[in-house]
Each structure stands twice: as structure tokens, then as C-alpha cells.
Design a protein around this nucleic acid. Structure first.
Ligand SMILES: [Mn+2]
Ligand SMILES: [Mn+2]
Ligand SMILES: [Mn+2]
Ligand SMILES: [Mn+2]
Lengths: 217, 217
DNA sequence: ATAAAAATTTAGGCAAGCCTAAATTTTTAG
DNA sequence: CTAAAAATTTAGGCTTGCCTAAATTTTTAT
């Protein structure tokens, strides 16, 4: 059985690893967990003792199979709870992450099974992230970033890569919702900002910074 | 903001206080929290510093107004989550207590408000315990114990005073469900066991030990 | 190839919550 | 009213997870 803290490290290692290749660095973990590098080193030694990570001093870290299984389990719980909070309790997608950070640690296999059933076996969380299967597979979505689309293309908004309240509220404000079809009408050559038309409706301005965090297909 | 541990102590002090009069003793708390008396003393000093309890060395402990407000808030959350687990996820009333022990600590006022609405503002949890109001009032039910009923009386099963899985499963097995009307047909003079008829159905044997933990009206 | 810079680990410490053993206070019995 | 028993607190320690400062290793730049 792992502590909340250990679970959070596993999840963070998984997330960082999936955004890069090779081992995850101590400093990257320190930044993500809002702790100091020395504290991360302590925890890495502990997780390595428990065989949840592969760890060689100074060489970064990688999840073992068991570590990845646990990480995916926690991510599954997190995303299912986010679906619950949005679909059943009516929270906005910008309000649920912090609550899910706590709910994901509730220890009961049966609870997750029943929650999943209650929610109708959702495939995606409110941010468009795929929900890992009960057996621990992370579905691979072949999404691209909106920032990689070319002028004239019509794409569907599928997911966000940034989960901060500020970012999501900005999208609310712009009228950019997951599932919408948007057409890239213009890409600014200087700052790479994008003008997109939402459906056949209004056209909105999307900065490069925002476009980089929007996944489309 | 209180830690899980502090919240649990407050809740436990409240529960013990409501089952007796006068101050709650260190030893009683140690037994309930499954810790040692010395550890309880440490925590009492801490809670007293935070003005959540009235505490004089060797004299036992009593919640302050603020302490009671917090305790009732935690009990409210616990009972609402139990309703959720039973009504929405289909768990048995004998399965939900441990999960609720964890869920009660999730920190979000708004979550409780929305959960309450989602559940239709329930008045009682699955064990018949009243749910404290949002403003922190604990409804007073004037229930008696089944063990205090006299032969010939017809009463309604309202709540259980013991929440262990074993006890609740025993009630399941006996067919004793909350809301049923039972008639006391016979009280054994030697061991105070009770024979009750459930509705107009079968008659079941209820030991004094069990009858003491059943609340009726 | 080195020396400076950056990353990481080690050393030593702190707070929260818990423990055992010893001291102290309160309660109970005679 | 005392002495034993029971309850409680104090003293000293342990583990987890965190910290700062110092040492070490790796990387980068000349
Ligand atoms: Mn989230
Ligand atoms: Mn999400
Ligand atoms: Mn309960
Ligand atoms: Mn209950």
C-alpha cells in the first residue's frame, strides 16, 4: 500500500515521462511536486526500494511495470472522479482538478468499478484526456496540436494539455469547447497566433501559447 | 485548516460526548482512535492551542463552539457520502463506512453543497443517523432502544447504534431493515432476548446485545 | 581538455503523529 | 484518611516527508 505522497510521485513520473523520452529528472520532479530536489531524491530511493521505479544515482528515473500499473490506476481514478464532478454534480471543467487530486487517493477497488458503471463507462474526462482501462492500458489518441494545423484546415477540438483554472476559463470565455469543429482561417506569420472560426459561428483569436495547448483531430 | 488526524479527533470527541455527559476522557479517546493515551494527550494539547477544545490537564475534554461546528461539518460529509455510496452506487449499508471515513476529509464546501443537492437533501444516512444541517445543527431524534420496548409493543426500526460490518450483516441476515414495523411478541426474562415479528411476516430472535443497538420509535 | 555551471545527492534537522517507559495526579478501597 | 490502583501526562524516540547547506557528479563552454 502506498501513501498519498508516493501515489503522487508515481503519477507525476508517469506524466513527465509521457511528455518526453528517456528518464525523468530529479529537478523536473521537484518542480512538478513543488518540493526541493533533495526531497525528491529521498523519495526516489524509497520508491526504488519498493521496486516501483528504476533508479540509478544521477541518471534519472523510469517507472517499473508495477509502478506504471499503479500510476495508471491513480490516473484512472482521477479522471473518473472528474467526470463525476462535471456530469453528475454540475461543476465546470475548470473547477474539478483540485478535488480530483484528493478523490483519486480514496482506497477502494470496488468504488472505482461502481463509479465507472454509474458514469456509463466514460472514455474521456472533461478535459478530453482518455481514461485508462481497468486493466491499465492508456488509450493512444493520435491528436495533434492546434498550433500545428495549417490555414484552411477544419479540425475538431479534442483535448486540452493545460489544466489550470485560468487556461480553462479563458477557453470558456473564447467559446472554445471540446467537440467543436473549428476552421483555421488565418495564421499570423509573426507571432503564430491563429484565427479560427467556430462552427459557422464567430471567429476567435487564439494565441500561439493557447494553440499549443489545444489538441485536435 | 485541520489535518485528517485532527478532524478525526474532533469527530470522535463529538461522538463520545454525545453518548455520555461531562467531559470525554483521554483513555476513551485512545480506545476509539486505536492509539495510546500518550498520543491522545499530545493531540489534545494541540487542539486546545487551536481553541477547538476546552482542556484542563487530568480533567478530560469538551469541544468549543468552533470545535463542535467543525465536528458536525465532518459528520455531515461522512453521512452524505454514505448516502451517495448506497443510493447512487448501490453499495450495501454494511460496506460504506470505511470509504466514508476517507471521503469525509475531502476539502470543498461547494462539493458538499452540490452532493447534498444531487442526493435530494437527504435527512438520514443509511444507518438511520440524522444528517447535520448545513448550518451545523444535529437534529434530535427521540428514539428509544429496542431493548427498552415492552412485550406487545409495535415499533418502527429507525437506526442502528453500531456500524460494524458484522453487526449490519447480521441484521441483513435476520431480515431487520430500517423502516420496518416490528412487534415485540416476547421478552425472555433470563437473558432479555426479544422475539419480534417483522410486519405480519416471520418472527425473528433478537439477542439483548443486538436489541441494545437498535433504535426504534 | 578543463574549468565553470548545473544537476544531483548527502548530511543534518524539523514538524506531525505515533510509541514505550517513567513520573505524576486522581480515584477508589479499605 | 491513607495506600493501592487507575488514569493521565511527561520524557525521550521513531518514521515520514520535507527543508537548507555542503559535497559530489555530470554537463557545458571555452
Ligand atoms: Mn485533473
Ligand atoms: Mn482531467
Ligand atoms: Mn459511517
Ligand atoms: Mn452512518
Amino acid at each position: 500500500m502506498q501513501s498519498f505522497t508516493e501515489e503522487n510521485y508515481l503519477k507525476t513520473i508517469y506524466n513527465l515521462a509521457s511528455k518526453q523520452q528517456g528518464e525523468v529528472s530529479t529537478n523536473a520532479l521537484a518542480e512538478m511536486t513543488a518540493t526541493k530536489a533533495a526531497s525528491v531524491t529521498d523519495m526516489l530511493r524509497k520508491l526504488a526500494d519498493k521496486q516501483l521505479i528504476h533508479y540509478k544515482k544521477y541518471q534519472g528515473v523510469r517507472l517499473t511495470e508495477e509502478g506504471e500499473r499503479l500510476a495508471l490506476q491513480i490516473i484512472r481514478r482521477h479522471r473518473l472522479w472528474e467526470v463525476f464532478l462535471v456530469q453528475k454534480l454540475g461543476f465546470g471543467w475548470d473547477e474539478v482538478h483540485e478535488m480530483a487530486e484528493e478523490l483519486e487517493h480514496i482506497r477502494s477497488e470496488e468504488l472505482v468499478v461502481r463509479l465507472d458503471t454509474f458514469l456509463g463507462h466514460p472514455q474521456f474526462d472533461p478535459h478530453g484526456d482518455p481514461i485508462p482501462t481497468p486493466t491499465g492500458q492508456m488509450p493512444e489518441m493520435g491528436y495533434r496540436k492546434l498550433s500545428d494545423a495549417v490555414a484552411g484546415e477544419a479540425v475538431c477540438l479534442r483535448a486540452v494539455m493545460e489544466h489550470s483554472t485560468e487556461f480553462l476559463q479563458h477557453l470558456n470565455h473564447s467559446g472554445l469547447t471540446l467537440g467543436s469543429i473549428v476552421t483555421v482561417s488565418e495564421i499570423n506569420a509573426f507571432d503564430k497566433s491563429v484565427l479560427v472560426q467556430i462552427g459557422n459561428d464567430r471567429t476567435v483569436f487564439v494565441s500561439h501559447e493557447v494553440a499549443k495547448n489545444l489538441l485536435v483531430s
